[in-house]
Design a binder for these strands. Structure first.
Length: 439
RNA sequence: GGCCCUAUCGUCUAAUGGUUAGGACAGCAGGUUUUCAAUCUGUUAACCGGGGUUCGACUCCCCGUAGGGUCACCA
């Protein structure tokens, strides 16, 4: 039997990270079994469904690099099919028009399913046997009218018509299952195999939703997360191969994935771990690509040549997990001294408890001398040239004022890198200025 | 509240009756460092509680407890 799965989002919002994971698990399972995955928009709610959300979902999946094999289909275009089933159900006395008491926003006639109140039992690939007594469901509504089917009806008909063999969805779908099975039985459809995935939780253990900050795939894309990192992280939320290997390509995931190893309990979304994984992928990435991303973000605030940026690359790269960290650094002014002369007060030029202006001036002058002697302008040569003097005189006493003169910051990259990046002329200018401040 | 699902370090998890309960992230300490970052090394930290079953339970069963999901003319 060929495996056929589906991804049926409702286009009522941006693609949620949890939905993306559901799609990913469907994808891994389907690809592993050489099956087919059907994409279907469940847009029967005309009020809330929007084209822009449809576009966002499609875009995000493309960005993530996981695709479907069939579709997309739109439930809103399949009304004739639902209508046919609906009529049949009514003809066979399995559903009926029901007169309702008119309440606000509701109509006086709907179509209800005639519930036989039996017990429904199904086997979940992840959780095992689950049994429900459907009595409390009552004669639930399956359509507002012949033209307007409700979710449960449309889903069951579509899954049947599209030959879906496996339904892999979120845990919140468990309680929907009995009524959907009831409908399946009424229309003579086989019950697919179910697998209900654990939910992705916010740090407070509630279902991850909008109020918890970044929850859409788009949010992460904008922050500059790598799609491969997101995929890798999502795959490991609720599943793992049982080995200590944690970095997996999509092909490796397809090969290793196993529904039976999927966790039963919900998993808290841990941004720290995602950041770590993202950094791992960043390290593997071609530096040219990283360069372009960094350039894009730096140029939002500073005018910079490629040559200068090339030097800056190593400094920035070590200090970020995600591209958006660059924005944070820029906003905090952490890179400002690479573009503008720093400002600081005299006392900042002294290392720890020292306060000997004369001595510090001598150190700085000596460093200028050393710099003038450097033949080959590289970090190593700069370091070699200055280090012997610094070691003799006390590294802190020499290096701290140099670094401060160049950066104006308590924390910055090492002085040799700064000298290398800023360039001889600028360095001498800044150190001279420091000497002036001290005199 | 009814129904359903779940329960190992702070977090993600390994363990499928016999382990000093392992790994990763985070944390902490140290090395390297003038400072920061990076990096290396080490390290703190968990079986929800109570009963069974068994020679032996994190693993199986039951009862609690806790958390979550769901109870629409939304999907």
């Amino acid at each position: 039997m060929k495996v056929i799965t589906r991804f049926p989002p409702s286009p009522t919002g941006f693609l949620h990270i949890g939905r993306a994971r559901t799609f990913l698990f469907n994808y891994l399972f389907t690809k592993q079994n050489k099956g087919k995955i059907v994409f279907r928009f469940e847009d029967t709610d005309k009020e809330r469904s929007k084209k822009e959300y449809e576009k966002n979902m499609l875009d995000c999946l493309e960005w993530l690099g996981i695709s479907y094999d069939d579709g997309p289909f739109w439930q809103s275009q399949r009304n004739d099919i639902y209508k046919t089933y609906l009529k049949k159900l009514i003809d066979e006395d399995k559903a009926y028009f029901s007169k309702e008491e008119v309440e606000e926003g509701k109509r006086n006639e709907v179509i209800r399913f005639k519930n036989s109140n039996k017990k429904i039992k199904f086997t979940d690939l992840i959780r095992g046997d689950i049994e429900f007594d459907t009595t409390e469901l009552g004669d639930f509504v399956i359509a507002k009218s012949l033209e307007e089917p409700i979710y449960h009806l449309a889903v069951v008909i579509d899954d049947f018509e599209m030959g879906i063999t496996h339904i892999i969805r979120g845990e919140d779908g468990i309680s929907n299952t009995p009524r959907q099975i009831l409908i399946q039985q009424a229309i003579g459809a086989p019950t697919p195999i179910y697998a209900h995935l654990p939910l992705i939780l916010a740090p407070d253990k509630s279902k991850l939703s909008g109020r918890h900050g970044a929850v859409s795939v788009d949010d992460y894309r904008e922050k500059g997360y790598l799609p491969e990192a997101i995929i890798n992280y999502l795959a490991f939320l609720g599943w793992n191969p049982g080995t200590t290997k944690e970095i997996f390509s999509i092909d490796e995931l397809i090969a290793q994935f196993d529904l039976a190893k999927v966790q039963k309990s919900g998993a808290i979304f841990n941004i720290e771990k995602l950041n770590w994984i993202n950094k791992e992928y960043l390290k593997k990435l071609d530096k040219k690509i990283v360069f372009k991303e960094i350039k894009k973000r730096i140029e939002k605030k500073y005018v910079v040549s490629d040559e200068y940026l090339e030097k800056l690359l190593m400094i920035i790269f070590d200090r970020i997990n995600v591209y958006s960290d660059i924005d944070t650094m820029i906003e905090a002014g952490e890179l400002d001294y690479f573009f503008n002369e720093p400002e600081y007060t005299k006392d900042k030029l002294f290392w720890k408890n020292e306060n000997d202006s004369k001595k510090t001036v001598i150190h700085l002058e000596k460093v200028i001398d050393s710099i003038n002697k450097i033949g080959n302008w590289s970090v190593d040569d700069i370091k070699n040239q200055i280090m012997s003097y610094a070691e003799k005189e006390g590294k802190g006493g020499v290096l701290w004022p140099v670094r401060y003169a160049l950066s104006g910051k308590d924390k910055s990259p090492d002085p040799f890198s700064l000298i290398y990046i800023l360039g001889k002329e600028e360095v001498i200018l800044r150190i001279s200025k420091a000497i002036h401040v001290l005199s």
